[in-house]
Amino acid sequence: MSEQIDERLRTELQRQGVWVTSMQDLYNWGRKNSIWPLQFGLACCAIEMIATAASRYDIARFGGEIFRPSPRQADLMIVAGTVTKKMAPQIVRLYNQMADPKYVIAMGACAISGGPFKQGYNVLKGIDRYIPVDVYIPGCPPRPEALLHAFMELQSKIDSQKLTGAHKAVHLDPKQPSEFPVPTFGKHDLEPPGNPVVFQPPKIER
């Protein structure tokens, strides 16, 4: 498994009609072509997500058309829209309830940073304060093509995940957590305001 077959030998064999693969490639091939997103939307980005799932943009071409209404059956969480502080604990709880392996796409300016509401009092400054995000899509709202691009980026990320070794995928590592603490409603803000395990603001040298 860890010993990769030589690429040139593989193409040569394929030319002769012999198809060779590794367990890892087979596993990732199966996973990346049937990603089931969790069906929920938070704001206007959700309309673009619906458009992406509908016939004109057709996310089914990439195997992601099965939107599941239950977190237990979903692989991917598309955080489409503004996450208010009142909504954030529910989002984290839904993420915790998803079965491994699970991925998150933060769609739109609000989901990645709070967007136009960043300096406001009731909008979370990005969902990556509480849960790990795999792909960020900027835009307000991003076009369906952007979501498809993010989806393909996620597919290539899944394709590159290792089955064994030191750099194996997060969900295969027993030491990596699968659940993250759910913030509670505090007197002035969510408590804690961020999860330092997941998110650390960039330090700038001035």
């Binding site: 709880r93 915790n96 309830q97 079965a99 969900h171 295969l172 699968s178 659940e179």
Partner: peptide, 15 residues
């Protein structure tokens, strides 16, 4: 390959 990672949220009844 895949270690099981149960938790209080994951095993809760409602979703």
């Amino acid at each position: 390959f895949q270690p099981s990672k149960p938790g209080p949220d994951k095993t809760s009844t409602y979703e």
